[in-house]
Design a protein around this nucleic acid. Structure first.
Length: 303
DNA sequence: AGGCAGGTGGCCA
DNA sequence: TGGCCACCTGCC
């Protein structure tokens, strides 16, 4: 006979402190290519990171969230960190050189309140190792399969609705190290499976390496990430921007290449040259500027 | 139906 | 240093 579990109070909706983005800007922030673990629901969005399982919904005048997992003990702290709630985003955005850059000004106006997420470092690395020459939908599928087949289930709050499609964590790096490459390939990873297996072996041989890397200043952290198989300039910058809060990281992907070619006259420039231009032109928060350019180009770039 | 997709690593001049 | 190409495979 099993005893009935103590009945926990249902998690209730709470207003999101200090952030009220439009539905489009919210979608661009959580589902625009920074993170691959958010799904639309009837009410809004469900997302997973670490041991967190969180719902978002928008009311007429505010954004609301609720925790669906039994852990962590203080979910509001986790949510605050994930959404960069410890930074003054309006001030950061205002310090970008939009006054002397009409296109940047146009991008800021098109996505007011856009934020850079601060995701768990190791998970960000995994997501972007999956990203090479893949579109966001497909990267999300890879992550979903990795989680469903190889990640531990997140203990849900008793009162949480069980319709959530994302009840599993991504596998940790030690867990990934035990998965045969063939099983990784079965998660639609293709040639990326070799990178992930290689990185898993590398990290398993060096306990603490990832945590040390996350804490290093940007140039040193990037140099270390480049040691990993499958991590080049672009992936390293994405991991540092979206998983370590390094706003000076300036990932150059095809969208940013397109953006700078068409809006800044940098036709035929190579990625390394564009990266240099970005750092000098946009300054120490180049990564934040990059996210606005990226979002604008994806949405309006077809003209 | 088939080319293409948020790159990287290896090889060659 | 710079340019090219293989690498997997599901989607539009």
């Amino acid at each position: 006979m099993t005893l009935p579990l103590p009945r926990l109070a249902p998690r209730t909706w709470a207003a999101f402190p200090g952030w009220n983005p439009s539905p489009a800007v919210l979608a661009e922030t959580i589902d625009g290519g920074q993170s691959f673990r958010w799904q639309r629901t009837a009410e809004g969005w469900t997302g997973v990171w670490g041991n967190s399982l969180v719902d978002l919904r928008q009311r007429a005048d505010r954004l609301e969230w609720r925790n669906l997992a039994r852990t962590p003990p203080d979910p509001s702290q986790t949510v605050t960190r994930y959404f960069g709630g410890d930074r003054d985003w309006p001030a950061l955005t205002d310090s970008l050189p939009w006054r002397s850059d009409p296109h940047l000004a146009q991008c800021l106006a098109a996505f007011p309140g856009l934020r850079i997420l601060r995701q768990p470092f190791g998970e960000t690395l995994l997501g972007f190792l999956c990203s090479a020459t893949k579109q966001i939908v497909q990267i999300k599928q890879m992550c979903a399969l990795l989680a469903a087949r190889h990640g531990t289930e997140i203990a849900r709050h008793e009162m949480a609705p069980d319709s959530s499609p994302l009840p599993h964590r991504l596998p940790s790096w030690p867990e990934l190290a035990h998965i045969p490459e063939a099983d990784l390939r079965a998660c639609l990873l293709g040639f990326r499976a070799r990178y992930i297996a290689g990185t898993a072996r590398f990290l398993t041989a060096r306990p603490g390496w990832l945590e040390e890397t996350e804490a290093l200043p940007y140039p040193a952290a990037k140099a270390r990430l480049l040691e990993l198989p499958g991590v080049g300039e672009k992936v390293a910058d994405c991991v540092l921007l979206f998983g370590a809060g390094q706003l000076e990281a300036f990932p150059v992907d095809t969208w940013v290449l397109k953006s700078l070619a068409r809006r800044y006259g940098l036709d035929h420039w190579k990625p390394a040259q564009v990266a240099h231009f970005g750092r000098t032109h946009f300054g120490p928060l180049a990564g934040l500027a990059q996210q606005y350019l990226f979002a604008w180009e994806r949405k309006f770039g077809g003209r």
